[in-house]
Write a protein that binds this DNA or RNA. Structure first.
Lengths: 134, 134
DNA sequence: ACGTGGTTAAGTGGAATTGTTTAAATTCAT
DNA sequence: ATGAATTTAAACAATTCCACTTAACCACGT
């Protein structure tokens, strides 16, 4: 029954940082190097990012699988695919073409390179038209 | 650059679970025992709980320390303590007495037993009157 | 050019997590 | 109360994560 993702060390550093202290100052206080403070702070942010991603995933549980975008697809063809699959299921997607592309880029940027889909992407659709990528 | 907290195994089990499958059925599908499915599902939920707690903590970063509720305090005395400390700082709490108690129970249920505060609770206050417990 | 603040990379010891099995215990509907 | 579903405990190997050091690198303002 541990508490959050962040370690005591990570929390302390985030707190001090929010107070405006420099990494060097924090290092002096907690007795370590500025490089170490930097590393710990970085992994703290990484943990927060993963926490968000995890919560995001839980939303996709309420969504149903819609389709898969194959690796190598042209990014600009993705919205039409999604609109079509959604209309088949009788659901109106709550994004337009541009909105969908932006949503995709925000959600799984590591799977997109310019106009190219570099890795296969799973698409999920909510009853209220929300879209999730994975 | 890993993605969320949940492992592939944990995500698959949560998905199948949401589809209504039993642990035995899932065990057959992914090739392991029902006991193992249970364990993995449990640790998945544990991870989700920690994700929530983590982003909850991030909110407290924007908040300032308000006061500490000592272990053994009567739950019903907590709101008045908080209202008083908040008014000293010139901030209007955005909850009434009942709302605060509910907020507290939702936020740190493991620190509350009936009317008794069993473990010390840190209280944080936002500029807009939001309250966070830890 | 120097100092300050921040970031990065490689490596290390120790702690924690994951998936697993086996076996026992518990809940729960019929 | 019988059986199915779920939960728990203990133990284990493999993996991952944490904090840390050292040493270097980048960007800046003076």
């Amino acid at each position: 029954m541990k508490d959050g993702l962040l370690t005591e060390r990570q929390r302390v550093i985030l707190r001090h940082r929010r107070q405006g202290l420099t990494q060097q100052q924090i290092g002096d206080i907690i007795g370590t190097s500025k490089a170490n403070v930097c590393t710990i702070e970085k992994s703290a942010f990484e943990n927060v990012r993963r926490a968000h991603e995890t919560i995001q995933f839980m939303y996709t549980l309420d969504a149903r699988f819609l389709c898969v975008i194959p690796s190598g697809a042209d990014l600009l063809t993705v919205p039409d695919t999604i609109f079509h699959e959604a209309s088949v299921r009788g659901v109106k997607v709550r994004y337009d073409t541009i909105g969908l592309i932006n949503r995709l880029r925000d959600s799984v940027p590591e799977h997109v390179k310019a106009r190219l889909v570099r890795d296969e992407i799973q698409v999920y659709l909510n009853d209220d038209g929300e879209i999730y990528f994975e």
